[in-house]
Structures are given as C-alpha cells and as structure tokens.
Computed example of a mutant assay.
Amino acid sequence: MKTLKNYMVAVMSILCIPAFAQTDKATTEKIIENQDFVFVATTAMPLSSQDVSAILYKLNSPNSSGAINLSGSRYDLVVKKDSVVAYLPFYGRSYSANLDPNEAGIKFNSKSFSYEKTKRKKGGWNIVIVPKDVKDHQKMTLYVTESGYATLNVMNNNRQPISFNGYLMEAKKKP
C-alpha cells in the first residue's frame, strides 16, 4: 500500500510540473493586460456522469483518466479587446436539443462581453469572461499561471460544465 502511495505521489509530481514554459512571465503578463491572447486547448475534461463515463470508456482505454486529448486539433478561445471567439468541443450532457449540427460544441463570436481579471497572491491570474450577446448564457473562467499554462472552466445553463487544459499564446497580428 505504501509503495502504491509513493508511486502515485511521484506520478502526480511529474504531471503537475511543466517540462518547459509556454511563455515567459513578462509575455504572459503583457498579453493578459492588453487583452490580446489565444487560449489553445490541449485536453478536455468533461464532468463525470454515468453516460459520459460509458462513452469515454469506449473512446479511451479502460484505465484512462477521463481527459480527452485534443492535440492535433485546433480548438481555441481567442480574446481581444473588442471580441471573444470560441471554437471548442463539448463532451457531456446537454439539457436542450440543438437541431443544427454545425452549432455543436462551444462556438460563438461575441462583441459584447465582460472581462474581469484578478491577480492571484501566489502568482498567476483569474480571468472571468461572460459573453452578453450569445444565445446560451455562459461563464468562462480562465486560471492562468505565470508561465502561460491555463485551465478554462465553462459553465452553461443548458449543458454540464466542462474544463479544458491548455496554454496561452500571443494572438497573431493581421498584416
């Protein structure tokens, strides 16, 4: 039992410590202050339920953690001073049916939204984004580290909550 406990502590330590930084502290602070960044999702973590667990069991290996690997896909949240554009997948239970298959996932383009950032005491930021001109009421919370790694939690009135792990990068400038 003690060996298993030590093994789990070692594995969690390796998973929690990033191998290299995505951005440096100055760049991360600059893009958050300028409200001009892209959150790139690398994994999705749906809220666990019996239905979702059964599907994940079929998609992933039986011993998987429930996280869905999104690498190789370009799922992101683009945040600018004048707009928020979301293109993210959704895995979980929806409480209202959407008849248009092109509207599946978390996809919207908002020009009217609130953006509230708070600096954490031990480093990093909490950013709350609430689009006001989107059909479904959503609240998106980004937890960002100084090195640019982030977790995005999406709360929606018509769906189960979902979280995404990923990183921030500078938005590409249009020529």
Rank of each mutant, 00 (worst) to 15 (best):
K119H: 10
D76R: 13
N98S: 09
S64T: 07
K173S: 13
F108V: 03
Q138P: 01
Y143T: 14
S94V: 11
G66H: 03
G66C: 01
K173H: 05
K172Y: 01
K5V: 15
K135Q: 06
L77E: 00
Y115N: 14
A54I: 12
K121C: 03
A104L: 05
K2N: 14
G92V: 06
D24G: 11
A104C: 01
Q50K: 14
D82I: 04
N126D: 13
I127K: 02
F20A: 08
K139E: 11
R93P: 02
A19P: 03
P62Q: 09
K135H: 04
S96N: 02
P161S: 07
L152D: 00
G124D: 03
N6Q: 13
L59E: 11
K122Q: 08
R93V: 14
R120T: 06
P161E: 06
R120D: 10
E146S: 15
R120Y: 05
K121F: 09
Y167R: 01
S114C: 08
K172P: 00
N6D: 10
I32Y: 03
N60A: 03
L168C: 07
K174A: 14
S49I: 03
A54W: 06
I17E: 04
N153M: 04
V144E: 02
S48P: 04
I55V: 11
V144I: 14
S61M: 12
K111H: 13
T42P: 01
S147T: 11
A150D: 00
L59S: 08
Q22S: 08
P101V: 12
Q160W: 05
D76F: 12
E33M: 11
Y7T: 08
Y143I: 04
I17Y: 02
D51I: 14
S94H: 01
Y149C: 02
S73F: 12
Q160S: 14
A86F: 06
A44K: 01
S61C: 08
P89E: 04
D36C: 13
D100A: 07
N156S: 11
Q22I: 03
S83H: 13
S64P: 03
Y7E: 09
V130G: 08
K2F: 07
I127S: 02
K107E: 05
L4S: 06
N6M: 06
S94A: 14
L47F: 10
I31D: 00
G123A: 00
M12Y: 02
L4I: 02
V9S: 05
S64W: 02
V154K: 03
N153L: 12
